[in-house]
Structures are given as structure tokens and as C-alpha cells.
Design a protein around this nucleic acid. Structure first.
Lengths: 205, 205
DNA sequence: GGACGCCCATGACATTTGTCTTCCCCCGCC
DNA sequence: GGCGGGGGAAGACAAATGTCATGGGCGTCC
């Protein structure tokens, strides 16, 4: 009877990965994929429609990010557990995931068997987090960048010049340079490219 | 009897993806995974040991790239077909894959069903290439960057300064700036960050 | 042999970037 | 009212970056 199957929502942008995971989990006796989405914007609507027990969310999605969607679910569908499934084990991601109320955080590097196991553990009320990653997240400390610094740094990816950034963020070029300088200082780097890289690495963007 | 099963080598660095695809293909009646590797350096040795009919290769792998490995296989195991399976449908990648003797080029965006279908078509002697991608590769033209320009640009990723690059490539700082300038000119961009991005985008690195 | 293209290197120059100091305005707080 | 603090802006300055012209060496192709 269907009430015994755990209902799963799967959000993942890469079609092949999504399909493969869906097929895989479909093979498990006690699981059922009730929704597959490839965009972050579809997560909440589909979740509200299909009422899954657990949502498997990638972080980097077109549209709304998986972390934002996790926060949405926390509010609008609190009985639905969230398991973040991501390529990048970035400390800041893990931190934000926990703050958004996720019950687990899994990187795609591990073996597939981990996935079903993690789902079962989350359903049982456990929190699933890679210990090494948790340590890294704690030792890295919280995000040192202010909102504006993040804005400016985000706008600085892929080579925008100071005036470009200024236009994008509606600030004076002089101010932009000040924020960039601050971000460079806080990340302990030597220029904006390194700063962007460091911030990305830590999941601070 | 085992001689009727197509023998497959699977090279993919992301553990979960690799495992999922392996399980999936294992479900097909006529296919058999004879080797799974997560590093580009393992491809050739494993292929020589297990003699697959077809190798499924990701491009961006630790160690030797999938494209390099494809070239290796062409020489050392010519009866083994190569199907490139990649996240990024970059024109330059496709071009290089064809030059390396690949029989097919598949992006991971599509549905999983495409994979088994592509394998069968390749085995049947067809070439499998996404038509839109082929058009893009042709319209983009060949890689305009010289070897040195590529070297310098590659060394310039993630914010290395001119002296850093010079040290890495064993060139004079002044020369490095010349090459960077040339690369910026050829890519039609305004600075090295944009040049790196553009070159990456096109698969010219 | 000459033309061409790539490689490597310099020097000069204009522009952009990164740093620091100072200033104004607004808000919250004692 | 006085006092700080943060956001935004500006100016001045040094350092890094991007451009250009020039020159030499080397290999290939006509």
C-alpha cells in the first residue's frame, strides 16, 4: 500500500544525473519518486502539490538555489525533511544548509549506496553530515563578508570592470573599489580574482 | 554467453554519478560494465586489461583528461570505440573529441535513456553528436590561441599575478603580458578574466 | 632565398586596480 | 543634545595591468 512508501522529491538540474538517481531510488522497495524538477523555482510548487516526505535538493540550480528552497520548505511544508545533495562540499554551504533547516548534507563524490542509506537515516530522525566536512565548516568560521561586499564580489565574477560592477549594483565606482578592497583584505588575498575564488571556495557567495 | 554482451569501461570522477550510471547500464540486457575508473590516469591501463568494446569517458577528470585518454585509446586499443560524456557542451571540446577519434559526444543534460541508445548507435558504427552542438562547433571556428597563449591563460586562472605566471611558465614577465594581451585581443575581451572565461566557454583551454 | 608565423624579450605609455585617509549623512542610543 | 557606527563617496598615490612598437631567433612553406 502506498502509505508505506517514502515519498521523494528530487531536484537536480543535470538531466542524466536526475534520471539516473530517480531510476535508482525507484528500485528501492520502500521508496517512491513523486516529483522530479530541474529548476529551483519548481521545488516549492511541486512539493506543495505532491507532499513528499523528503526533498533531495541540489544547491546550484537554475532559478532559486537549493538552499533558498530549503528555507521555503521549512516554512511552507515543515513536515518535509530536506537532504542537500551537492557537488561541492563547501563549508559555507553546509552552514547555510543547517541554518535553512536541512536534515542532511551529502556530497556527490561518495558511492551511490550512501544515498539510500542517508535517506533512511534522515527519515529516522538522524542528521546526516560528513564528519570531515563538519569539521571544516567549524574551523572555517562564519562568513566574514558583509552583504554589500558579497554583492560587489558576486558582480565581479568573470571579469567585470569596476564601472560595470558599479552600474550593476547601483553604486559609485569609488565605493565599489572600497568594497573590493575590503573583501580582498578579509579573504586574505591579493586581488579580486583571488578574492572571488576564495569566497566561492568557502561558499560565501 | 558473455561474448554477446557489450563490454563497457566507465570513466567518471563523481562517485555518485559513476555508480548510478554503472548500475543503470548493468540493468540493460546486452551490456556489461567491465571497468569503472575515477581518474584519467587509470583509463588506459584498465582498458588494456579488460578490453572493453566501448569506453564512456568524462572529459574533466583528475589526472589525464578524457580527451587525452581518447587519443591514447585510439592508438593502443583501436577496436575500442569512444563515447565522450560530458557536462559541458563546449565547441572546442567537441572538436578535440572528434580529432581524438571519438565516435560520439553526449552531454549530461539529456535524459538517461539517451545514453544506452547512444551506446547502441555507436556500436552499430554510427557517429552520435548533438546536431545543435555540431552547428555551434562549426560556427565557432577553430581554436585561435597558440600553445603559449593557452599556457599563459591557463596559468592565469584564479588570480595569479603576472610574475606568478611568468614563474610558472618560465617566461619573462614582459613576455607574459604580451601573450595575455594577444589572448585578450583574439578572444575579443577586455581583460584576462574575461579572456579566461571566454576561452573556457569555448573549450580552448 | 624570401615571406610568414610563432616564440621570446624590452621599453614606453596610458589605464586600471588596490590602498588609505578623509568626509558627509543618517540612524540608533545614552 | 552628544556620540558612535555604518553606508556611501572622493581624492591621492603606488602598483599592477593592458597596449604598442621594435627587435632578434627559428622553423616551414612557396
Amino acid at each position: 500500500m502506498s502509505s508505506e512508501l517514502t515519498r521523494i522529491l528530487l531536484a537536480e538540474d543535470q538531466g542524466m544525473m536526475r534520471g539516473a538517481l530517480a531510476l535508482l531510488l525507484g528500485l528501492e522497495e520502500d521508496m517512491e519518486i513523486v516529483a522530479q524538477v530541474g529548476s529551483g523555482d519548481d521545488i516549492l510548487p511541486q512539493a506543495l502539490r505532491t507532499r513528499p516526505d523528503i526533498a533531495l535538493l541540489d544547491i546550484e540550480l537554475p532559478g532559486r538555489s537549493g538552499l533558498d528552497a530549503a528555507a521555503d520548505l521549512r516554512v511552507r511544508l515543515p513536515e518535509c525533511r530536506v537532504l542537500i545533495l551537492t557537488t561541492f562540499g563547501r563549508p559555507g554551504y553546509l552552514r547555510r544548509a543547517m541554518e535553512a533547516g536541512a536534515s542532511g548534507f551529502l556530497v556527490k563524490d561518495g558511492p551511490v549506496e550512501d544515498l539510500a542509506a542517508a535517506i533512511r537515516r534522515v527519515l529516522a530522525g538522524e542528521r546526516v553530515i560528513d564528519p570531515a566536512l563538519a569539521a571544516a565548516a567549524l574551523s572555517a568560521g562564519p562568513n566574514p563578508l558583509t552583504q554589500r561586499e558579497r554583492d560587489v564580489l558576486s558582480a565581479a565574477v568573470d571579469g567585470a570592470t569596476v564601472v560595470d560592477i558599479a552600474a550593476k549594483v547601483h553604486l559609485s565606482p569609488a565605493t565599489v573599489r572600497n568594497y573590493l578592497s575590503a573583501a580582498i583584505g578579509k579573504t586574505g588575498t591579493r586581488n579580486r580574482m583571488e578574492a572571488v575564488r576564495a569566497a566561492r571556495q568557502n561558499g560565501w557567495l
